[in-house]
């Protein structure tokens, strides 16, 4: 009898190796057929003593449009915890194929600021396997604590969709929620995203997923052009909300149409203040000024 201990990794896993392994796994599954299990691995993965490179932090802050303060941006923490999260999805007993998963939603609680001198402990696990009208979705939960502390300073829940994968015992939701018609409001900002946006974010986040890097590598995975990282877009929106958000806040984003590169993205940020004049929350929505399609929307709110 073995107890489901958390898997403590000696060091942060390498994303590139994970992607290679994922590709091999996908090929293997195509050959052997999937062992259709509808159970998520119970173990969490944990890495302790993660240090932040200040050069990498500064480059990230500059790319996203954050001031290079000593406080780690919430999106940067997502990026450093991302390989750990991916390592859970990369397990052989994880029932969905990692490659081609679509990031549907992301929800972060930044409870207290973390600074670059903090040594970080982080855990990641998967939960909440459930149906979706076009596949199966799952939540990846990552938590980050300052070295040895029990207190979670940062918690992120990323919801991914495995399109076209239906597992036994997991029902599709019967009612498809009606999508409200989107009428683009007056934009408060216009982003000009160059064709190298994906590569630039890959360089600071370490997420070299081929769909973001170039037209060719994206086409190999069935995309017509490369697309911007969802977390790049969400992090820029968070930066655009500005310092009013303080150091503890929630940050939620829902992704819709992907942003193909290069392109222009229109954005509206609407801020609401409480009766006493302090900042309550800012909602953001982004769309294509050409087609009017909504790319993503979300909220940053006081915690």
């Amino acid at each position: 009898m073995t107890l489901a201990q958390p898997v403590i990794l000696a060091e942060m896993p390498s994303l590139s190796k994970l992607y290679v392994n994922a590709a091999a796994q996908a090929a293997r599954r195509r050959l052997l057929g999937t062992h259709d299990s509808a159970v998520l691995p119970a173990e969490s993965h944990e890495v302790r003593g993660v240090r932040v490179g200040v050069e990498n932090l500064t480059a990230y802050q500059h790319l996203i449009g954050e001031t290079a303060s000593d406080v780690l941006p919430a999106g940067f923490i997502h990026a450093i915890a991302f390989p750990l999260a991916m390592s859970v999805l990369n397990r052989d007993d994880f029932p969905l194929p990692l490659l081609g998963m679509i990031h549907l939603r992301n929800s972060v609680q930044q409870r207290s600021p973390l600074v670059f001198t903090d040594v970080l402990d982080m855990t990641a696990r998967v939960e909440n396997l459930r149906g979706h009208r076009s596949g199966t979705q799952v939540d990846v939960v990552a938590e980050v604590r300052p070295g040895g502390s029990g207190e979670v300073y940062w918690r992120g829940v990323s919801t991914y969709l495995s399109k076209g994968v239906f597992l036994p015992g997991i029902d599709k939701p019967t009612a498809v929620p009606p999508r409200a018609d989107f009428q683009p409001p007056d934009p408060t900002a216009l982003w000009h995203l160059g064709v190298d946006t994906g590569r630039a974010y890959a360089a600071v986040s370490g997420d070299f997923n081929p769909i973001h890097l170039s037209v060719l590598s994206a086409k190999a995975l069935g995309m017509r052009r490369s697309i911007a990282h969802g977390m790049y877009l969400a992090s820029r929106a968070l930066a655009d909300v500005g310092p009013a958000r303080g150091d503890s806040f929630t940050w939620d984003v829902e992704f819709e149409a992907p942003v193909f590169l290069p392109s222009r993205v229109a954005l509206e940020i609407a801020t609401e203040h409480s009766g006493s004049g302090s900042w309550k929350h800012s909602r953001f929505v982004a769309w294509s000024p050409r087609s009017g399609r909504r790319h993503f929307s979300g909220t940053v709110a006081a915690l």
Binding site: T58, A59, T67, A68, S69, G277, S278
Partner: peptide, 25 residues
């Protein structure tokens, strides 16, 4: 501060001043 920009450093100096004198908002 090799990788820090002028804007980063000026903001850091401002934020310290704000904290010292309670000038938030």
């Amino acid at each position: 501060y090799a990788k820090s920009s002028n804007q980063d450093m000026l903001t850091a100096a401002l934020d310290g001043l704000i904290a010292r004198f309670g000038l938030q908002d």
